[in-house]
Nucleic acid binder design. Structure first.
Lengths: 139, 139
DNA sequence: TGTATATTGTTATATTATTACATATCGTGA
DNA sequence: TCACGATATGTAATAATATAACAATATACA
């Protein structure tokens, strides 16, 4: 698999539990960021009944690094990188809010290097580029 | 003024209104991130009565680029850079939550360059390094 | 099997942020 | 100066996001 292809993590690879699995599958199939309460609505037919069930699954998936939280949107998106090591880099359109994960591994290295050069003990980083996206829905 | 010194923006420079001014002053004097409802508590003696008064002031100050929002903490901090152009770079301790704004202008340029190299029309960026801080309060 | 750990279910509640609408203030051009 | 548009304020209500607390189950594995 090359870097330019999208990389789909399998639920089986992580011994996910029932709730974790259905939340993760929804995020992978959706491909775009979803909010916790939207996930809950979506998964009521799968038996989810309370926000906490969703938040618990989301927290675990974030911990595993297989989904990421877009903090400025309170939304969650499946990771599409093979080796992000929980580092995150996104473009976020400032007009339509469209989010894309950046897959350029070179960029990840360069940002890590910036941390090192600044003598930081970086556990992970999050980089958000607020952009005008091409073919913006809102244009 | 050199880069290594802290840079305090003056409220007069921005024609701030009454509420904007007291919120901004509190953030500057505090030096650390504060949450909206903490600001409200703090400024009740100055006459603030509702969350909306705080949020409106915060939104304006963010727009002006003289404070920044730490999205992952829902908190706000006075900008300590002379020329961040609304770009933000922080270290956030993953244990104690301590936040510091990075003042290395070279880093800002390099991150901007990364955006350019990736052919992005970057309006602004936000970079968060999750670190283990020195002398962590929680250690 | 026994036991520690993690997960689930459920209710209640805390925290963060916005809508809606009435009123007041400020800047600027006629 | 005044009128009118834009911006800011005050206030109440409510929406959206997230966690606490506690009981019950399931799972891993010594």
């Amino acid at each position: 698999m090359t870097n330019s292809q999208s990389y789909n993590k399998k639920t089986n690879d992580y011994n996910l539990t029932k709730n974790q699995k259905i939340v993760f599958n929804l995020l992978q199939n959706s491909g775009e960021p979803l909010k916790a309460y939207a996930i809950l609505e979506n998964l009521k037919r799968e038996g989810l009944k309370s926000p906490l069930q969703v938040y618990r699954a989301l927290n675990k998936l974030v911990e595993l690094g297989i989904i990421h939280k877009i903090e400025s949107q309170n939304s969650f998106i499946a990771c599409s990188n093979s080796n992000c090591a929980s580092n995150t880099a996104f473009t976020i359109c400032r007009r339509c809010g469209d989010v894309k994960e950046i897959k350029n591994n070179h960029l990840f290295e360069q940002v890590s290097d910036l941390g090192k050069k600044n003598r930081l003990k970086v556990h992970r980083f999050n980089l958000e580029f607020y952009v005008d996206c091409n073919g913006c829905k809102v244009n």
